[in-house]
């Protein structure tokens, strides 16, 4: 079974994020960079399925050259191969352009299973898995609580409104997982050392047969940062009840 995990290197979710004031693209220098939280569960699920079906896991990321750090981490977590799609033409790519690049790569490699984490912690649009599945013309099973594969059929449990549904489709499929899907393992020392020396394939837009000027379908015109909430009144426990009641009355909540 050929499995691919698409990961994204993002600013740390504890840090404050912003757009670069000049380009209005995400300012990736302004914050620490880690693998998007949800992607770690996708890597783990890929490695588990590879163990179960004697398969191979490739991890791919699209981004600047420093994204190799995240790819090495994915290798340490058990992926077999890593590829970085990097090109000057990718700067500021929107969701539609990103999905085109990923789908072009995935098409050229004939994967049985493509895994994504849940929405990235930076842009967080949550549209990429469905866009990639649509471009590959394969079913997309999203927000999996669990993923089972049996006799070439993928089955996913998924929360939907007030219940849980079961989605199933024959391979190849695109699946996005959640933090409920599994408990990721920690990398061991040997794997970390090996990942540092591993070869990472670099791929350009031309390698994928794409033009260097990717069309973005959306445009950001301006940004305004929300002013921080200013602190109001601080009251200790003794004055709490009357302060609370007065506030709720003054603001007409009661």
């Amino acid at each position: 079974m050929k499995i691919c995990v698409c990961i994204k290197q993002v600013p740390d979710s504890w840090s404050q994020k912003q757009l670069d004031p000049e380009s209005l693209n995400l300012d990736r220098n302004a914050a620490d960079r880690v693998i998007s939280d949800g992607d770690v569960f996708a890597i783990e699920e890929a490695v588990r399925k590879a163990e179960q079906f004697d398969g191979e896991v490739t991890v791919v990321s699209m981004g600047p050259s420093r994204a190799v750090d995240s790819l090495r981490k994915a290798l340490a977590l058990g992926a077999n191969h890593a590829a970085l799609i990097t090109d000057e033409g990718l700067a500021g790519a929107d969701a539609l352009a990103t999905s085109l690049v990923l789908a072009s790569y995935l098409k050229s490699r004939d994967f049985d299973l493509v895994l994504f984490g849940s929405a990235s912690t930076d842009a967080g649009m949550g549209v990429i898995p469905s866009m990639v599945g649509t471009r590959l013309k394969v079913p997309t099973l999203t927000m999996a609580l669990s993923l089972e594969i049996e006799a070439g059929i993928a089955r996913v449990q998924r929360i939907s409104g007030s219940g849980t549904d079961e989605l199933s489709a024959p391979l190849p499929v695109v699946v996005s997982v959640t933090d409920k899907t599994n408990t990721p393992r920690l990398p061991n020392f040997k794997a970390i050392m090996a990942s540092k020396k591993a070869e990472i394939e670099e791929i350009s837009l031309a390698d994928l047969g794409l033009t260097p000027n990717l069309e973005s379908f959306t445009k950001v015109h301006s940004q305004t940062l929300r002013p921080p909430r200013s602190a109001g009144r601080i009251v200790d426990e003794a004055g709490a009840l009357s302060a609370l009641e007065d506030f709720l009355i003054a603001e007409k909540f009661i």
Binding site: F217, T218, V220, L225
Partner: peptide, 9 residues
């Protein structure tokens, strides 16, 4: 934390 004005082109 940030509000942007955008459009579909």
């Amino acid at each position: 934390f940030s509000t942007v004005i955008s459009s579909v082109s």
